Computed example of a mutant assay.
Amino acid sequence: MTQTTVTAKRLTIQIRLEPGCLGPDGKSHIETFCAAATRIFAAIEPERVHWVLLPRHDKQLPEQTFFLGDRKLSEEQAAQLMSRLGLDLATLQERSDAMLALLVERYFKTL
């Protein structure tokens, strides 16, 4: 399998985080937090998933969006793709939620 094929099969999961999750001063820290969290998330299923964590300044945007290349996928399509790649999307989402909770907790300890 070539690198191009592996990259083409990677699901991109875009997670938008509310600045308020970092407390009342979250707006001033959310950009840095998202950049650091994206680097940490890169270690979660790196051959099959590409993580992008962004601030959620517009509440009309969804918390999670899924992509295969430039193509936007529904959650059902993302789950089917993950299943073909040997992963369960719900389990992956649970892992990402737990990791985010841990990172937010660590953030508060640094204040």
Rank of each mutant, 00 (worst) to 15 (best):
T2Q: 05
T2F: 01
T4V: 12
T4Y: 05
T4D: 14
T7N: 14
A8H: 13
A8E: 14
A8N: 15
R10M: 11
L11D: 02
T12E: 11
I15P: 00
I15Y: 02
I15A: 07
L17G: 01
P19W: 00
P19S: 02
P19G: 01
G20K: 07
C21A: 07
L22M: 05
L22S: 05
G23Q: 05
G23Y: 01
G23E: 03
P24Y: 09
P24H: 12
P24Q: 12
D25S: 08
K27T: 07
H29G: 02
I30E: 05
E31Y: 06
T32Y: 06
A35V: 10
A36N: 12
A37H: 14
A37I: 08
T38W: 05
R39A: 15
R39K: 15
R39N: 15
F41N: 05
F41K: 03
A43E: 12
A43W: 03
A43N: 09
I44P: 01
I44L: 15
I44F: 08
I44D: 08
E45L: 15
E47F: 04
R48W: 02
R48L: 04
V49H: 02
V49K: 01
W51A: 00
V52W: 09
L53A: 05
L54V: 13
P55M: 09
H57F: 09
H57R: 12
D58K: 04
Q60N: 13
L61P: 00
L61T: 03
L61R: 11
P62D: 07
P62G: 04
P62Q: 08
Q64L: 14
F66L: 01
L68V: 03
G69C: 05
D70N: 15
D70Y: 10
D70E: 15
R71V: 10
L73K: 09
L73Q: 08
E75Q: 14
E75S: 13
Q77M: 11
A78V: 06
Q80S: 11
L81V: 10
L81P: 03
L81E: 07
L81K: 02
M82Q: 09
R84D: 09
R84F: 07
R84C: 06
L85A: 08
L85S: 13
G86T: 07
L87S: 06
L89H: 07
A90I: 07
A90K: 14
A90C: 07
T91I: 10
T91L: 11
Q93G: 05
E94Q: 13
E94S: 10
R95I: 13
R95E: 15
R95W: 13
R95D: 15
S96V: 14
S96H: 09
S96D: 08
D97V: 00
M99D: 03
L100E: 14
L100G: 04
L102S: 12
L102E: 14
L103G: 04
L103Q: 11
V104Q: 13
E105L: 11
E105N: 14
R106A: 11
F108V: 04
K109H: 10
T110Q: 15
T110G: 08
T110N: 11
